[in-house]
Amino acid sequence: MKSFLSAEFVFATAQYESGDWDSAPLVPANIIDTIARYTEIVVAPTGAIVPLGDERMLRYPFLYLTGHLPVRFNEAERRNVKRFVDRGGLLFIDDHNHDVDGTFHKTATEEITRTVGPLTELPNDHPLYSAFFKFDGPPTTSHELNGWGDNLVHKHLLAVQRNGRIGVLYSSKDYSSEWGYHPDSKRFQSVDNTRFAVNIVVYALTA
């Protein structure tokens, strides 16, 4: 029997005026590959780039934001991000700089606090960690201890929640570097390190 399922999931990368929003160009294709590999979620074969200052960003309830440089939203970006979170979207921010005192971390957390509220630690038994694969907390990355960043293993992700759901998920773990490779290279890994991305997407679509 032919199945008729919901509209497809589009992996959207947030484009913001300040900073280097396109610092991890390989991540979308890799995550799309992972979603298609492990789930039957109908996923668009290519991602989208969505300017935060354009109201049409509200048509993409999942947004991925990354970069190394300072993050400063302009008024339109701030207004749209607030509406996005208030209406139930999930903004996943990953610090590509993975430096706890780095400019991205400082400015991004300040901007999120100013726009939608303070980030708090997400408990490691949060449903996010069991949405598809089981994790005891945020999986570590090879980049956390490579000497380029803060040399800390961040035990928690941060989040802003609305009505019990994550509206902003913030990571200092540099998943953007960890997942920034061509999907075909997965075959060289004993354990796929992008599996946590499935949890994030499944959580966004079901919670």
Partner: peptide, 27 residues
């Protein structure tokens, strides 16, 4: 199936006070 329509229906009903159980097919 897991998707935006189901997710936002659940959100809307829960915000309105309905007790909701959901079964979303993922794989």
């Amino acid at each position: 199936a897991a998707g935006w329509e189901g997710k936002f229906i659940v959100s809307a009903l829960e915000e309105r006070g309905w007790p909701v159980s959901a079964r979303f097919s993922v794989a």
